[in-house]
Simulated scan of single mutants.
Amino acid sequence: MKLKELNEKTPFFVEGIDIDAPKDFVFKFISEYEKHGLWIEGLKEETHTDVEGVVGSTFTEKIKKYGMEDEYCGKVLAYEADKMYQIEIGDKWVDFKIEYDVEETSPEKTHLIQTAWTLKGTSLHKLFNFFNRQILHNQMEKLKAAVEDEYKKIK
């Protein structure tokens, strides 16, 4: 099946979660590759090429899900330190744009909003949105737990 341009304007996933850790700690946790294995389920390997200013940096992730290993390639589309991190990531079936927005609700609490859009996909991409939403939701829960655990260690 061939990927076709979709560039959907309406996100297929938007979810917010409160995390008991400071905003800069949460943002750093999301944007640093070294931490990804703590919250991206099935991540087996990640390589990256950083560029000055972060935007344009690229990465490759090997993820094992449902007994199969797949390779995802991506790049950083936008980066505002301690505020917003946006990536494009995809495999042979679909490409997504995912944005993480962090807001301080108190010095020790952060509200994280994750939004995802489909950029390219096969004709079956909408059938998989149910599974993709579930994967992203589970990632948010795992991210919250990992951030809070790591923050407790340094507190």
Rank of each mutant, 00 (worst) to 15 (best):
K2T: 12
E8D: 15
E8L: 15
E15D: 15
A21T: 01
D24S: 12
K28V: 00
K28H: 13
I30A: 09
S31C: 05
Y33C: 01
Y33Q: 03
Y33G: 06
E34D: 15
H36P: 11
L38E: 15
W39F: 09
W39V: 01
I40D: 01
I40Y: 00
E41Q: 04
E45V: 00
E46P: 03
E46C: 09
T47K: 08
D50K: 00
V51Y: 12
G53P: 09
V54R: 13
V54W: 08
G56Q: 10
S57H: 06
T58C: 11
I63T: 05
K65C: 00
M68F: 10
E69K: 05
D70K: 09
Y72T: 04
V76Q: 04
L77M: 03
Y79T: 07
Y79W: 06
K83A: 05
K83D: 06
K83R: 10
Q86H: 02
Q86I: 04
I87T: 13
I87C: 11
G90P: 13
G90F: 13
I98N: 07
E99Q: 14
E103F: 00
E104Y: 00
E104V: 00
T105R: 06
H111W: 01
L112C: 08
L112Y: 09
Q114C: 10
T115L: 14
T115G: 15
T115F: 11
T115D: 15
W117V: 05
T118K: 10
G121T: 10
L124R: 14
H125I: 01
K126R: 14
F130I: 14
R133W: 01
H137R: 09
M140E: 08
K142W: 00
L143R: 01
L143N: 03
K144H: 06
D149N: 12
E150Y: 06
Y151P: 15
K152H: 12
I154K: 14
K155C: 13
K155D: 06
